[in-house]
Simulated scan of single mutants.
Amino acid sequence: MIGQSLIDSVRATIGIPGDPASIRVVCAMSGGVDSTVTAALLKEAGFDVIGITLQLYDHGEAVRRKGACCAGQDIHDARRAAAVLGIPHYVLDFESRFKEAVIDEFVSSYLSGETPIPCVTCNRTVKFADLLQRSRDLDAAVLATGHYVESRARGDGSGRRDMFTPSDLARDQSYFLFATTQDQLDYLRFPLGTLTKPEARAIAADLGLSVADKPDSQDICFVPDGRYADLILKLRPDGAEPGDIVDLEGEVLGRHDGIIHYTIGQRRGLGIASAEPLYVVRIDPAARSVVVGPREALKQTDIRVNGLNWLGDEPLGADPQPIFAKIRSARPPVPGGIRQAETGPVVTIHGGEYGISPGQACVLYEADGSGARVLGGGFIARA
Rank of each mutant, 00 (worst) to 15 (best):
C27R: 06
G155H: 03
L111Q: 14
D58F: 07
G378C: 12
R331L: 13
Y57E: 04
I75E: 01
A325E: 05
A204K: 10
L316N: 02
F190I: 01
T115L: 07
L316I: 05
V10M: 07
A367Y: 13
H89Y: 06
G157S: 01
N309S: 11
S158N: 09
S108F: 00
A83H: 04
A40L: 06
G243A: 02
G293S: 07
L375Y: 13
T121D: 15
L54N: 00
F128T: 02
G317M: 03
P166W: 11
V363F: 05
S357T: 13
P294S: 14
D244F: 10
T301S: 14
I14G: 04
A273M: 14
G359E: 08
G359C: 04
D74N: 15
P166E: 10
D257M: 07
F324I: 06
P198I: 02
T348R: 14
D216F: 02
A229I: 06
T343C: 06
Y354M: 13
G155V: 15
D8M: 12
R236A: 15
P358K: 12
E114T: 00
R328H: 12
R304D: 09
A62T: 14
Q360Y: 05
G208C: 00
E249V: 03
Y354N: 05
V246C: 04
I349E: 08
Q360C: 13
D48C: 00
A361Y: 00
I264H: 00
A229F: 07
T38N: 00
I232L: 02
D302W: 03
Q300R: 15
K66H: 05
L298Y: 14
I264F: 05
K66M: 08
L209E: 08
D186L: 04
G226W: 11
G146Q: 10
A202C: 15
A21C: 11
H147S: 08
L278D: 01
A318C: 06
C70R: 03
F47T: 04
F176K: 04
Q55L: 11
A372K: 09
L56H: 00
P277D: 09
H261T: 02
G371M: 14
P358I: 10
W310D: 13
Q321P: 00
P198W: 01
L233M: 15
A275H: 10
A287M: 04
A71D: 04
I16S: 11
D8W: 03
A39G: 00
F94T: 01
N309A: 12
V305E: 11
T115K: 07
S357P: 00
A200N: 02
R152D: 11
G15F: 02
G31I: 03
A82E: 08
G376Y: 12
G208P: 10
Y228I: 07
G60T: 06
F47C: 00
G369K: 14
I349S: 14
L195I: 04
K326P: 02
R154W: 01
D219K: 11
I14R: 09
D257L: 14
K299N: 13
